[in-house]
Design a protein around this nucleic acid. Sequence first.
RNA 1: GGCCCUAUCGUCUAACGGUUAGGACAUCGGCUUUUCAAGCCGGUAAUCCGGGUUCGAUUCCCGGUAGGGUCACCA
Length: 472
Amino acid sequence: MEENKVVTRFAPSPTGFMHVGNLRTALYAWLLARKNNGNFILRIEDTDKEREVPGATEHILKVLKWVGIDWDEGPSVGGPHSPYTQSERLDLYKKYALNLIEQGLAYPDPYTAEEVEQFRRKAEQEKRAFLYREHRPEKFEKWDGSKPLRFKVPEIKSYHWHDVVFGDLSAGPEALDDFILIKSDGYPTYNFCHIVDDIEMGITHVVRGQEYISSIPKFLSLYEALKINPPIFVCLPHIMGKDGNKKLGKRDGAKDALEYKEEGYISSAIVNFLSLLGWHPKSDKEIFTVSELINVFDVQRIQKSGAQWNDDKLDWLNKEHMKMLTREEIEKNILEWLPEELQNPKLAPIIFERISKWGDIKEMVEKGELSFFAKQPEYDRQKLIFKNTLPDKIIENLKLAMNALGAIDENNFSQEKIKDALMPLADRLESRGELLHPVRYALSGLDKSPDPFIIASILGKNETLSRLQKAI
RNA sequence: GGCCCUAUCGUCUAACGGUUAGGACAUCGGCUUUUCAAGCCGGUAAUCCGGGUUCGAUUCCCGGUAGGGUCACCA
């Protein structure tokens, strides 16, 4: 491997579905790697066997594939640091643990879980932060694997370090503690094994959420014990929920990333939106394709404060990405979301104007906003009347419209021709609505609908005349 | 409670000591118009508070306030 090559990773736990917060972390790590022609590694951190959810790993891979985040090393592609699933790397962690024991920097926890819990409660009562090391045994027993193995903090001191996003950070000795390296079930803790793996895999930039900032002194003390230089830290601000100022988590309604797929969002729009949630390019440009994003992405411009999720902006961005599709692609997508009886490509333009994501089509269909294209609508005859126009006048206008439309060649019944036929008639009236409204309503049966010209052109000459006749 | 982080329009953000504090979403108004949608044009709207430093602070420092994170045999 070349010197100085950027290597980042995304290291999710298969403990549930992957939500958009996780996805943004993955995205930033990936953008950082791609921007620098580096490597992006996917690593599955499945050391919590209690909380592991079957199928979660597959789900994570599916989300990443959907948005186009590819990995150079990891599950299903392999790589020089194989395997990429932590439960298959237990020997490695043990090797590191033994090394620490030899140095006198790791020891078995002699207390029962209940005893430790008591220490914790006492600290809480005294309104102090709980520190296990205050109860550290004077003499270390030999570790036989039945007890948790703890790290002995080599030196209780303050730490100062640099974070790419948050700048210079520091924490006092209270942040340091004898954390658990290996649990009594034999699996390592995150605090331990992520560091081992990051070292082994040559990770240069660790990108993760800012909730880890308070743990970094612990990591630093472990790096010191291991005599390894820590990587570059890149902590990301939280994504906040839409209603409160709470960190966006599963409990506060953070959605499964795949739900956005099901709702008909375009993956590049999700990527674009997520990229802007806590990061901003130098220019005022906001609409980016994924490859443009790789070009302009810059970790230095990541925000410090948390950003609130905003569905309106996501929808707007999604629409902008939809507009980048070709006419054929748009038509194809729309037809996919349309039921059998509405499979008509001519509907595409009027639908496209009215949606910001494909899933909106489903809503339009459910609300009956399109059903008049499939069958003659039932409607309230009173509503044919435009404002205070007399009913006789309406009938007369409808007849005029019928005559004008009847004169158009059936094979040439286009929107333009229809407009050319009706507009001169409408212009002669006091208000165009006296003619256009009853025509539109006769064709659609809806208070709100597309204009009568396009409706008529889609319905065709025969159906149009028949509906006008019925109205009369 | 200890420790840590953050603070510009409702929201996402620009500004890296000197700007009429800019852009985007949302909102409001106008144009267009037969209704809706789309489109175009325009408006309202922000530097949390108090001290310093400075000729000059959104910007630097200190204090307050508010919000967030963390204090697991979870990651």
